[in-house]
């Protein structure tokens, strides 16, 4: 198993509150790592450390190192890092432009100008995000006319269009109905062969359905990380068991 991302002794603070405490974790290539845990357990903060989106917050501080393919992410050019590590947010955020422009937006900024090439990227990304059949006839329409579930898959396609290696999903189904949720989950599983996926979710069952391994976070600490099977059948920590059986959280 190849380690895609290695996290060594990561500590994070917002102002003076420590939100992640001495975290060691490896993310393997072509796995779906599910991260579960109650609110304020540091899941999303951790995810946003990986593409350095936390840096936007002036009150954020961190110590420790995150290596991607063995290289410290702080030494990678920010634009390159974020192109290689894409992110899908909790709420489907379509930019106020057409479906086509939403998908080509990132690729264009990365220097792809050829129209044929861009159209190819649009089709390929939409197919991968299982949205192509639903929108192929109306790519020039505003993305905001799509339903919530379609918009979320559009966001996935938009992330895929810049050709990432890792995709971070931050509670991607929290605003979606069950059918849309199923489609997004199916998409994630299909993407596993080509990409490394980190999925933060509040939905324990969802983590069980799609993840290869699951990490349980609690109050900024990693309590346990194991294969999905093991963590549900024989959790080694009492707190994990309490959480997944619904005794708290």
């Amino acid at each position: 198993m190849v380690v895609k991302i290695q996290v060594n002794n990561l500590n994070c603070w917002f102002k003076n509150t420590q939100v992640i405490k001495s975290l060691f974790l490896s993310i393997l290539e072509h796995e779906i790592l599910g991260i579960i845990g109650p609110a304020n357990s540091g899941k999303t903060t951790f995810l946003r450390c990986l593409n350095r989106l936390n840096d936007l917050n002036p009150h954020f501080k961190s110590k420790g190192e995150i290596l991607k393919d063995g290289r410290n992410i702080n030494t990678i050019k920010l634009e390159t890092l974020r192109q290689e590590i894409g992110m899908v947010f909790a709420m489907p955020i379509s930019l106020p432009m057409s479906i086509y422009d939403n998908i080509t937006y990132g690729a264009k900024q990365h220097g792809i100008k050829n129209k044929k090439e861009l159209s190819g990227i649009v089709e390929e990304s939409l197919v991968k995000a299982s949205l192509w059949d639903e929108v192929k006839g109306r790519l020039d329409q505003p993305a905001l006319q799509l339903s919530g579930g379609q918009q979320q898959r559009l966001c996935i396609a938009r992330t895929l269009a810049v050709q990432p290696e890792v995709i971070l999903f931050d509670e991607p189904c929290s605003g979606l109905d069950p059918i849309s949720t199923a489609k997004v989950e199916e998409t994630m599983i299909n993407l596993k062969d080509k990409y490394t996926i980190v999925l933060v979710t509040n939905n324990v069952k969802q983590a069980a359905r799609v993840s290869s391994r699951i990490a349980f976070f609690l109050m900024g600490e990693l309590v346990e990380i194991d294969t999905a099977n093991d963590i549900f059948v024989k959790p080694s920590d009492r707190r994990t068991e309490d959480y997944i059986t619904g005794r708290f959280g």
Partner: peptide, 10 residues
């Protein structure tokens, strides 16, 4: 909107 754009490496 800013976060989406930045997260794409723009």
């Amino acid at each position: 909107f800013r976060e989406v754009s930045l997260s794409l490496g723009v």
